[in-house]
Write a protein that binds this DNA or RNA. Sequence first.
DNA 1: CCAGTCAAGACACATTTGTGACGATTACGG
DNA 2: CCGTAATCGTCACAAATGTGTCTTGACTGG
Lengths: 318, 318
Amino acid sequence: MTDNNDADGSFDAALAARICWHYFKEGQTQELIAQQLNLTRKRVNRMLAEARERGLVQITIQRPLGPCSELESRLTKMFELRHAIVVPSPIGNTDVRVLVGAAAGDYISDHLTPGGALGIAWGGTINAAAQNVRRRSGEANRVVLLCGGLAESTSINPYDNASMMARALDARCYYITAPMFAASPELRDLLLASEPVRSVLAMVSKLDLALLSAVDLTDQSRALEYGVITRNDWRSLRAAGAVGDICGHYLDADGNVIEHSLTTRVINPSVKSLQAIPLRVLAAGGASKVAIVRAAIRARLCNALITDESAATALVRS
Amino acid sequence: MTDNNDADGSFDAALAARICWHYFKEGQTQELIAQQLNLTRKRVNRMLAEARERGLVQITIQRPLGPCSELESRLTKMFELRHAIVVPSPIGNTDVRVLVGAAAGDYISDHLTPGGALGIAWGGTINAAAQNVRRRSGEANRVVLLCGGLAESTSINPYDNASMMARALDARCYYITAPMFAASPELRDLLLASEPVRSVLAMVSKLDLALLSAVDLTDQSRALEYGVITRNDWRSLRAAGAVGDICGHYLDADGNVIEHSLTTRVINPSVKSLQAIPLRVLAAGGASKVAIVRAAIRARLCNALITDESAATALVRS
DNA sequence: CCAGTCAAGACACATTTGTGACGATTACGG
DNA sequence: CCGTAATCGTCACAAATGTGTCTTGACTGG
């Protein structure tokens, strides 16, 4: 009856849930909970932390929250978006992606209809979103990963993101079983035409909802850090006018698609198929993402936006 | 743009929301938040507490939580309920009504369709539920209070409960503008037939969902404490075999309606009209409520139950 | 059977949080 | 204009929390 179907064994979700209940709902002290449940306080403390990590406790703040909603409505009008969500920028050294991702997880929970098909990009933001989606079960949802994989598993990995999201939604997950960038244009074409890849990509235009992320090409770009592109590519892409990419489509500041040697090798859903998705949510925050976010909107690759206050402020000033 | 439509002025919801965001989502310390926002730490601390009081932050624990879900399925089968929700019993001296109420608020949020009509009873549990409902707006929901009022405003008051719930749901609220017990049977009949009362009661059988509470007649009964009934009535009701009441309908242990001088003066929806409501959720926890909960189920006054572990355990043992 | 390894408990300590006392400042009614 | 009361900030301290280190003990692979 008690389900411990999670991938890793060493975590008693039922116990954690009970601890969370006593702590968050009942407001008891960790000490007392430990006594009652015959645990050490430290254990309680750690399970509490782990439960929050895993998104076992969901903390929602009643929206709208003041100045942010002002920005939201301005963004919505200005860029003709379906929705805009603006969260406060971090005041500490918190990663803005965790915050925007948390909001994105909420958003997905609210907008993915039961049995719906969700496409996702990858990255720190998406990772945080996956951790913050409200768990579902038995709805036959589907998750489609909108990019190829990365061979060397960095801390953030596309397949990992997708599997986490799928697990949270109790969804079937579809992966593009190919690298993000093929070794050669010829190989790319072969892969695109070959079977597992072709049929997964064909699903894209049928999706109900896409959760997209933005890769920037600023000095802070994580693409370099994660080894997605080389520094040479980074330089030449910038020289070609690119400000970043959405699912491997490199865009200039006006939202035009940039041609580049990389783009002849990328394995990704076409711009058209992405545009066919009714609700295309872009989740990206921080100053470095402003240019690519604006470009993505202009390219009509997104019609809903989740971002933070600082980026939103910059966007409405444009 | 920033809406401060709450009844009491001296609470900056937008600021509180921002503080909550930085604290709960970003995980910053109160000290740092205070610095950044130019507030004192104490102020941050108090606003955090107040925000939680007011249900501005919603904490959800991923269900199902182990042993409780076991009880839930047993209750569901045993009593042929639509749903059963069991929450852990308090381990400290927390009021069980707050915990059961919190779960009830969640339940309402999940099951009241937009634009739906909700009937509610009153009491500590309902009060907690109202504080825990997820805020909605612009859905034209309706809330109908299923009992008359109490003249002297105790800490928990029917009109108060209803108004809080209606405010949370941005709902129109309908009150029975009559006392819970009329001074005489004749006056009761006059009131039932008279206009504002009659039409509100007529709405009852059209409701989508009712959130009911159980009044017990044990030694711990709050009905005495709140001065709803006199000690004499309490004694004679018990003598007549009553174990408690649901919306003013006194029941014996088998769920039969008890006749009593009080019941000739009570102003409430008929049993029939209550039974016509598709989803009738009874929220009540603690040992003292076991008998009346069982009676209510037998009387088919409820087909969904929210309770705590101790009461649930007692119920399945019957 | 014996290290070696790893998880979990005991303990200790620094940080963070909740709360009360006290004084300053402001609003308000006479 | 003054006194009163209420509010808010400052300080201080106790409680609760997060995080190390060290130790115990169980399991593992020779």
